[in-house]
């Protein structure tokens, strides 16, 4: 149904670490694989082997270049490159749900996961229009709206071993940049991570109150404190000869050194 349920205590979602994501697209493809074989219609591909190929994906990795401000008295810090995976953020105030005319889009009462009931979806596309994040894609073949399911058919799946009950993208991420958990529980690992690392919302001004959070990249290319480092390279000799002199001394200082 289309009206939003009262906010659930349990808010399942992802936390994505932009400091660690190397942009490998593993999460993209494992998501495609799992969701092609599971939940609803397979994710189709058009022009699969020709020009202008396109297909349905529920998770995509962008990359951005960020140029730190160029200050007068300092050499310009180099531009940074940041990989940026993006899937449905399972918003608390999900506009995609309320616009849906059929009730196909809904937010689960028990854990806040936003889903599309494909049997009811007419493929009008309005929910995708309403989503600021581009998290919904209409599958051209099935004619229904597709979106990240938070792998609802994995995380509770009793046919999977306990340790595998996590989203496909999280399980596969080689660098461990994706975390899954209950963001409604302040004591959960993901909530702690968000608190410690200053996790943030995308487009907060849109008022969607995303559940998923992003962890910012750590500061990069920080100018070292040369003064503090300098003593580490205090010369002990200026040339080979001097070095040999130093060496003799240094060697005799080693254990068992006195000849």
């Amino acid at each position: 149904m289309t009206t939003l349920p009262p906010p659930s205590a349990k808010k399942l979602g992802l936390v994505i670490d932009l400091d660690t994501c190397v942009g490998c697209h593993a999460c993209v493809v494992s998501c495609k694989g799992w969701n092609t074989e599971n939940y609803g219609a397979p994710l189709s591909d058009q022009n699969a082997y020709s020009g202008a190929a396109s297909g349905t994906f529920l998770n995509r990795v962008h990359s951005y270049e960020v140029q730190p401000p160029i200050l007068k008295d300092k050499p310009a810090a180099p531009a940074q490159l940041i990989h940026f995976p993006k899937s449905c953020l399972h918003c608390e105030d999900a506009p995609c749900v309320t616009v849906c005319p059929t009730g196909a889009s809904y937010k689960r009462v028990e854990d806040g996961i936003v889903l599309v009931n494909e049997k009811d979806c007419i493929g009008c596309g309005l929910c995708a229009w309403a989503c600021p994040y581009g998290a919904r894609e209409l599958d051209e073949k099935a004619g229904v709206m597709k979106k990240c399911t938070l792998c609802v058919d994995r995380i509770y799946n009793e046919n999977l071993p306990e340790e595998d009950r996590q989203p496909a993208c999280v399980r596969t991420c080689p660098s461990g940049a994706r975390h899954f958990g209950d963001l409604g529980d302040e004591t959960s690992d993901v909530s702690i991570l968000v608190a410690e690392r200053g996790g943030f919302d995308l487009m907060p001004e849109q008022g969607t109150k995303p559940t998923n959070k992003y962890l910012p990249p750590r500061p990069k290319d920080v100018e070292p404190e040369y003064d503090i480092l300098a003593p580490y390279l205090e010369p002990i000799a200026e040339d080979g000869k001097g070095f040999v002199g130093w060496l003799d001394k240094a060697l005799s200082a080693l254990p068992g050194g006195a000849k």
Binding site: A26, S30, G33, E37, D164, R171, T172, P174
Partner: peptide, 23 residues
Amino acid sequence: VAYIEGNKDHPVNKGVLCAKGSA
């Protein structure tokens, strides 16, 4: 073949899989 994922016990990848592997 329905779906491929990483082997958690494997010494190399310990369960993770890259994009190519998943594809």
